[in-house]
């Protein structure tokens, strides 16, 4: 593992991919995100964990404007996220997202799901888009399902299609919002394997997950959130073996007991 980690940290450059400065968000009266500060460098793989309701999903959903933040700055690449639709579209083109419930388009085949955004957003010619889609479907090991509809696939296969669909846009950053939480246990591994491979290739990843094994294998930073705040941020080795905050210790003792 230490070898993997040193290999991993080598891929990280100094270039800043995502910058959050004092980001705050409210749902009505409820203060969900409190003064979030975070810098993500190109090639970094960050795992975000914390109890439910801690704001971790909300935070990564703010990064591509699925949720709107009310105060603070979010800068992705060189674009500042504000109400300018052009900026939002620029950022969404560069940021891929994988959802807990896959959110594949059920009326389109797997291949069409993958080709849709390249054709309509990037204006890639259809044949080229299909070739790219097949390449990524091969990488997630389901090229033979290309002409099926999402409803005909298992949960694990659907999630791998969702990953391929995002990759077809050739994003700079991938966001994962609890990608394995809706899966049956025997399917979690096939999805995690794809994600680990992606990490090895140097993709910048932000991943909300409870898969601590995944965090130990690929993350170069683990972030613990609670009550809308970042409580602790550390390298995985330190984070798991030497947690500093009391809340982190309690959380880890609750999820690692078994």
């Amino acid at each position: 593992m230490s070898e993997q980690q040193s290999q991993a940290s080598m891929n990280v450059s100094d270039e800043v991919m995502i910058q959050l400065n004092n980001v705050n968000k409210w749902y009505g009266e409820f203060h969900v995100l409190k003064d979030i500060n975070l810098t993500v460098r190109k090639g970094e793989r960050i795992v975000i964990c914390g109890p439910s309701g801690s704001g971790k999903s909300t935070m990564i959903r703010c990064l591509n404007r699925l949720e709107e933040h009310q105060a603070g700055d979010i800068i992705v690449g060189e674009t500042t996220l504000n109400n300018d639709l052009k900026n939002i579209e620029t950022i969404r083109r560069e940021v891929g997202m994988v959802f807990q419930h896959f959110n594949l388009f059920p009326h389109l085949t797997v291949l069409e799901n993958c080709c849709l955004a390249p054709i309509w957003v990037r204006k890639t010619p259809r044949e080229e888009a299909e070739a790219i889609a097949m390449k990524y479907l091969e990488r997630v090991k389901i090229p033979d399902q290309a002409y099926k509809y999402p409803g005909q696939l298992s949960g694990g296969q659907q999630q791998r299609v969702a990953i391929a669909r995002s990759l077809c846009m050739n994003p700079e950053v991938m966001l994962f919002d609890e990608p394995t939480s809706a899966l049956d246990p025997e399917m979690i591994k096939e999805v995690l394997d794809v994600m680990i491979e992606l990490a090895k290739e140097g993709m910048t990843m932000l991943c909300v997950t409870h898969e601590m094994g995944f965090a130990k294998t690929v993350a170069n930073r683990v972030i613990f959130m609670d009550g809308g705040q970042i409580i602790e941020e550390n390298e995985p080795e330190e984070f798991f073996h030497n947690p500093q905050s009391e809340r982190t210790q309690l959380f880890l003792s609750q999820i690692l007991q078994h």
Partner: peptide, 12 residues
């Protein structure tokens, strides 16, 4: 989720 997936892919 369908709206969100379309948004996340950058569709107008």
């Amino acid at each position: 989720g369908q709206y969100e997936a379309a948004d996340a892919l950058g569709l107008s």
